[in-house]
């Protein structure tokens, strides 16, 4: 047995849920501790950038990166982790495909800042003050990272070896990843460590295979039949395009699938695939009828790309057209 493995956990534009998922593996963490030294984990222990910079290049066995890449400091972190790690794992939906932070890509950074510092109802900022990237404090110059034009998925910035999907990733797949490292039986590069089919394949609800939706409803406004397919009950569910491996956790609990595992291997674009799935279950003979039914879905792009706007085919706001609903 060689020396102990070395793991690093790098947080970025994320909510912290991924870090909690790491702790959530319970007693397995003891096995991880037996197997590996954690050489960098700023969320849990007092690590600074210079600790990571001091390590030899490629000395970390696996670098886990969670969160989207939103500012230039995140880019620095991503590149640094790549340099120091033999393998880099995009940990969680944000690192894998942009996640929730990339929903901001519907707007420009200026529009987001305007919303955040001027027009949010709880903000009182009559002078239009904005955070400054540099500030001369009596103690010395203080700096803030610069927000980039949009949020990126990790593999749009650095080379990524594996992906652990989910919001947050599930314990069993984290354990599977750690075991793969321990046994040395690594899957091919680029593998998404989860299932290979769609959530519908794991879903216990029954499907009738018939077109039957004449109206879409929001899930909290109706009582759904726990035995039947949510989509067929007119409740938007991302199952048909979403990678399985979660044991249909949300759907089993009475909630619709939100697509956090990202698209399956056969799906290139979640939004397009879901638009297609919806079309195949909707009963409409005329365009007007279809428009009426689909009109119930207020924010299809936001729903379909909830976790993956940065990796969608169109990818980014083009600024040519503004929907009226703004």
């Amino acid at each position: 047995m060689p020396d102990k493995f070395k793991f690093a956990f790098m947080p970025s534009a994320s909510c912290g849920g991924c870090e909690i998922a790491i702790v959530d593996i319970d007693e397995v963490i003891l096995k991880v501790a037996e197997l590996a030294d954690i050489v960098y984990w700023p969320t849990a222990l007092d690590f600074k950038d210079h600790h990571l910079e001091a390590l030899p290049d490629g000395s970390i066995t696996v670098g886990f990166f969670n969160g989207a890449v939103r500012n230039d400091h995140d880019v620095h972190h991503a590149k640094l982790l790549r340099q120091k790690s033999a393998f880099v794992v995009a940990f969680g939906a944000c690192a894998q495909m942009g996640g929730i932070p990339s929903l901001g890509n519907f707007w420009t950074t200026e529009e987001l800042a305007h919303r955040m510092y001027d027009t949010v109802p709880s903000v009182n900022n009559p002078e239009g003050t904005r955070p400054q990237l540099k500030y001369d404090a009596p103690e010395g110059e203080l700096t803030l990272p610069r927000a980039m034009d949009r949020a990126y998925a990790l593999d749009q910035v650095i080379d990524v070896d594996y992906y652990l999907p989910g919001c947050p990733p599930q314990v069993k797949w984290i354990v599977a990843a750690v075991e793969a490292v321990a046994s040395g039986e690594l899957p091919p590069k680029g593998t998404v460590i989860a299932g290979t089919k769609a959530v519908c394949d794991e879903c216990p609800r029954e499907r009738s295979e018939e077109k039957q939706v004449t109206e879409f409803k929001r899930i909290h406004l109706v009582e759904n039949d726990p035995e039947k397919c949510l989509l067929e009950q007119g409740i938007m569910c991302c199952g048909p395009a979403t990678r399985d491996g979660c044991e249909a956790a949300c759907v089993t609990a009475g909630q619709a699938c939100r697509g956090c595992f990202g698209p399956t291997d056969n799906v290139n674009d979640m939004g397009a695939k879901l638009a297609s799935a919806i079309a195949s279950i909707t009963v409409a003979d005329a365009q007007e009828e279809a428009d009426r039914i689909l009109g119930h879905l207020d924010d299809p792009a936001g729903y379909f790309y909830r976790f993956g706007l940065a990796k969608s085919m169109l990818g980014v706001q083009r600024g040519e057209f503004k929907p009226e609903a703004e």
Partner: peptide, 11 residues
């Protein structure tokens, strides 16, 4: 025609 073809063309 899959909607993905259309987005792919635009992309």
């Amino acid at each position: 025609v899959d909607p993905q073809f259309v987005l792919d063309a635009f992309a």
